[in-house]
Design a protein around this nucleic acid. Structure first.
Lengths: 203, 203
DNA sequence: GGAAAGAATGAGCAATCGCTCAGGTTTCTC
DNA sequence: GAGAAACCTGAGCGATTGCTCATTCTTTCC
């Protein structure tokens, strides 16, 4: 008889599923184009083409919308990282490292504003446990991969490398760089240098 | 006879100068402790121990306060970078590079929340021209230093390195790391690797 | 000592925000 | 086709925000 503690309804009909998608996409579009502080629930609803009432039937708070976008992005990154570092593919450490860096670039170069907003968002609020867990899982996966490659202090190294790469890719994206191959080469130099791997294959 | 386009008064008496300082310090304190979104003008005035009316005699908008804090921080960083890369000290490229990295750590490890907030702030608003110019001057100075060291594509390299270092130092700060020497060693590995300088002196 | 300029006050305005709720429309189920 | 369930609507509430302005207090200068 208690009122639903979790105000979020989950959509059963196709129409409602489309509504939820529209809301998430609208929020992401606003984030890309204008950033966090210009994102209001009324505006998200307007851009999504639904009423605010509808929005609040599927998302209990404004933060829930943002958390879900971040969750989706991280989930996708985690899967890409899993694929890049998967065992039993016959690839060596360095080949996997390359795919890791490629995944990072693919994940972030496209929408630096979005990535930046989400990252900032994460730093200022205790988000969903699941979202935080994803972040930890990403670092853990990278650390495990580094450990298998014989890298000392894998946790620390994973944190350093992920943060440095993110900074560099983000800056390149904001500066309008679109040449992924060139960026990849520089990113690899950065990573290989940090890991003391010596000169790379590609130059 | 036109009304003052620039609503900011500049303080003439010592009392007023102290007021301006108090406002800036209060804003910085709020930024460190709670972040951008919790910073309101009424709260800044309250923490500073002045009335909002007084605050608005010296700062035309809320953003002006934040811009000034960012300007001060950047000014200080630029001067540290100038000192680190100064000519005629008899030091070599590598010694100067070390001092550059040390300056970056000193500048950012202390208050990662503040640094993060200011950085985000910069990305979402067209701030004062002077603030933007400082950012450009910092990159230019680093690029000039790299060019003198024989580094190819100095502008690109400066952007990459500054962004990567910032990301790494920021992450270390947020993770609670306080051992500057250890962080310095890792940062140098990152930078030296990117620049293809081979093995460093310190391990 | 007195007037003008500088500095400080704080109630409160206009705008905006996140969000609610009473009701209407569409879809599903039998 | 009829009732139920799911879905959608949007006016507007209460709170908060950035900021103004009429007024008062303080300092400077002759």
């Amino acid at each position: 008889m208690t009122a639903p503690l979790h105000p979020r309804k989950n959509p059963r009909q196709a129409r409602a599923r489309a509504t939820v998608t529209a809301i998430l996409e609208a929020a992401a579009r606003i984030l890309v184009a204008e950033g966090l502080e210009r994102l209001t629930t009324n505006r998200v609803a307007e851009v999504a083409g639904v009423s605010i009432g509808t929005l609040y039937q599927y998302f209990p708070t404004k933060e829930a919308i943002l958390a879900e976008i971040l969750r989706d992005k991280r989930q996708q990154l985690l899967e890409d990282i899993r694929a890049a570092t998967a065992e039993g593919t016959g690839e060596g450490f360095e080949a996997r490292l390359s795919r890791l860096v490629e995944a990072a670039i693919a994940h972030q170069l496209g929408q630096p504003t979005l990535a930046r907003s989400l990252e900032y968002l994460d730093s200022l609020l205790p988000l969903e446990a699941e979202t935080q867990a994803l972040k930890a899982a990403i670092l853990e996966r990278v650390a495990g991969f580094l450990a298998r490659g014989g890298v000392a202090r894998p946790d620390e190294s994973a944190r350093d490398l992920v943060a440095a790469l993110r900074g560099m890719i983000d800056a390149a994206g904001l500066a309008g760089e679109t040449d992924r191959a060139a960026l990849f080469r520089r990113a690899m130099r950065l990573v290989r240098g940090y890991l003391d791997l010596g000169e790379g294959v590609s130059r």
